[in-house]
């Protein structure tokens, strides 16, 4: 492996191993199991298709828990490296700081994306035991949820560079929440009579990451499959936005003085 890629993968591997042994991961998994089992027992005594209720609650919970996990683990990992001076050891070994950002992202995306996939597989197993939804759209929704998690990791990586852990988590959560309402914010501006409000909401719409653009959970299981164009849009938007956010992160980090 060449000299540029080798440090990136070494950082990714160390990040993966470090986060893998973090107790937060297993707490999240346990919490999801409790939610899914509660949802299953509740759904069995209510009217309607049990498997669809479990699927809806399960996908929503996975999205919420994955986002929370992505924010907490990303910020905790980067801040701990800074406080424990591990970051200094890494930065003096690599030729450029962007290698650190990319390595960190790959490591976090692999482990958190892996856990999101595991949660989706658990959900699918549970749904399989209680009924039969349209599987292709469920799988597509699960893939989109993993992409959404990666996007949130990229957002959290930018704010992880803030001086305090609390501030970093608060800012990332705010963007996560706002990112799910960008379309609503834009519509609110369009319906307003004020041109300045219209302009502000347009800027917000284009500035914030649009997490609804990668949300395929609403019709998962109800329709046979999402069409190719939708999937292509989800992939293009996710990777484009992740790339954009990582470039911002690299530019910010490159200029940052670590006093």
């Amino acid at each position: 492996m060449n000299n540029t890629l080798s440090p990136i993968f070494a950082i990714a591997r160390m990040t993966f191993s470090e986060v893998l042994r973090n107790k937060v991961m297993y707490s999240v998994l346990l919490f999801l199991m409790i939610i899914l089992l509660t949802a299953t027992s509740l759904a069995s005594v209510t009217m309607g298709r049990t498997e669809m209720m479990v699927l809806d609650i399960g996908l929503g919970s996975i999205s919420m828990l994955s986002s929370l996990m992505a924010i907490v683990l990303t910020i905790q990992s980067i801040q701990q490296e800074k406080e424990g001076r591990m970051l200094y050891v890494l930065l003096t070994r690599i030729s450029s700081r962007w290698q650190y950002i990319l390595g960190k992202f790959i490591g976090l995306a692999t482990i958190i994306g892996g856990l999101t996939t595991l949660m989706c597989l658990l959900l699918m197993l549970l749904v399989y035991l209680v009924g039969t939804p349209f599987w292709p759209s469920v799988i597509q929704a699960c893939i989109a949820t993993v992409l959404e998690t990666w996007l949130i990791i990229a957002i959290a990586m930018i704010f992880a560079q803030a001086s305090s852990l609390f501030l970093a988590i608060l800012l990332s959560l705010s963007i996560d929440v706002a990112g799910r309402f960008t379309f609503t914010i834009q519509q609110f501006g369009q319906q307003s009579d004020s041109p300045s409000l219209h302009w502000i909401t347009e800027v917000i719409y284009y500035l914030l990451p649009n997490l609804e653009a990668v949300n395929l959970r609403n019709s998962a299981g109800y329709i046979e499959t999402y069409n190719q164009e939708t999937m292509m849009n989800v992939f293009l938007y996710s990777f484009g936005e992740i790339g954009f956010l990582l470039i911002i992160c690299m530019l910010v980090f490159e200029r940052r003085d670590l006093h």
Partner: peptide, 17 residues
Amino acid sequence: AKSIGFMPEQPYFYKNL
């Protein structure tokens, strides 16, 4: 990077590794 070795003051490293 290749020519130096650096040890910071009171390092803590990755505690789970």
